[in-house]
Amino acid sequence: MVIPKGMKTDILDTLADSMSKISPYPERQHYENVAKALVEKHPSLKEPGSGKGWYGWFHSLKFKLGNYRQKLSAAGCPEVRVNKRIGEDAKGSRVKKSKKGEVHYCPDPPEGLSAEDMEGKRKMIEVEMLKKDLDHQQIEELMSATFSKRRKEIVGDQPLIGDVMTRWPAMFCERQVRAEFKRIVSTDLLESFLNGLDDLVPRLLEVYEAVTKSGKKPALKAILDCVKKDVSRRAENSKIGHQVLCLQ
């Protein structure tokens, strides 16, 4: 099938718009997946004489999304505009693409909130953090409302940590460290850490065991002995429970 130029442009525009809503900076694999899905759903769009049938769409989509990013930048999209090289910055490397897993890298401001409104809320956070008894619920609401402004400052201006601590003191509380992490990647930081730690436990126990065999760290040996007893007791209880179920 010979695809008219206008139709191909419309298809690429639609795909670029949909992809940019997820991330303006897709990886190669993402382009390939979209191109494959396109020709699989619409076999008539396969390229004649091409083994894969989607490779031309892959390249066209890359160029189209590059042009689309320029339009987003001109329209003021924060996540794309922050990468624009202006003046002296054009000489150096300025790459602020969102990292893998970052869902809200540099989001747009909340609807109905102006820059002045968010600055007022930021000052309210400063005042609240001076109190002895913090209202964590209010701080959470204010931090969520000012997330866009905070990300724009951190990603775009690259301030010193001391300046961030001065302007956003709540960000350095344990509760807000977890909350900010979840705002950016939509994942609970503590849960992610504990899951990763669980994967490392067998190897860590091997390292600890090797240390105690050399006669060092007697306190660590006592802990390991308690762990072994606990594991043995649980295994025995599980075995008994299994036997009881079999008898029933």
Rank of each mutant, 00 (worst) to 15 (best):
A179P: 01
L204H: 07
N237C: 04
K239M: 12
N83Q: 11
H59S: 10
D133E: 09
P169K: 09
E40R: 09
I86N: 03
D157A: 15
L12F: 06
V2F: 11
K96L: 11
R28W: 11
K121Y: 10
G6F: 00
Q158E: 09
E47Q: 08
K41G: 07
R233S: 03
A115K: 12
T146Y: 06
R69C: 10
C106H: 02
R94A: 07
F172Y: 13
G196N: 11
E40I: 03
D108L: 08
A219G: 13
K84T: 07
I139K: 07
G101P: 02
K152G: 02
K97D: 05
D13N: 06
K221Q: 08
K96P: 10
E153V: 15
H136K: 06
K41P: 15
F181H: 14
R175S: 13
Q243P: 02
W54Y: 05
S98I: 13
R122P: 07
L130W: 13
D108H: 02
K46H: 00
A115G: 05
S232E: 13
I223F: 09
K216G: 00
Q29A: 09
M19W: 02
K5E: 15
I139S: 01
G215A: 06
R203T: 09
R233A: 09
V244H: 02
P202K: 07
E174D: 11
N237G: 00
G49I: 01
N195R: 12
M7K: 09
S44Q: 07
Q243F: 03
E88P: 06
R234Y: 06
V2N: 10
R233N: 12
M124F: 11
D13Q: 04
P169I: 11
T187H: 14
K221A: 07
N67T: 01
P43F: 15
K91N: 08
K217D: 12
H104F: 07
P109W: 05
E27F: 09
E174V: 11
L65K: 03
Y208L: 14
C106S: 12
C106T: 02
Y25H: 10
T212A: 07
H59L: 12
G6M: 05
E209C: 01
R183G: 03
L72V: 01
G196T: 02
K52D: 03
F147D: 04
T166N: 02
M7S: 10
A235D: 09
A210P: 00
C226H: 09
R167G: 07
H59V: 15
I154D: 03
V127D: 13
A35N: 00
D199L: 13
G51S: 11
E32C: 08
E102T: 00
L245G: 07
G76E: 13
E140D: 15
K121P: 08
T9F: 01
R69Q: 08
M171I: 15
D89L: 11
G162N: 14
L160N: 11
K213G: 01
D198A: 14
Q29P: 00
K64Y: 15
V227N: 05
L205E: 15
L194V: 13
K216P: 00
G120T: 02
M129K: 06
D108T: 05
F181Q: 12
L189K: 03
F181K: 08
G156F: 02
L38Q: 04
Q158K: 14
L130D: 10
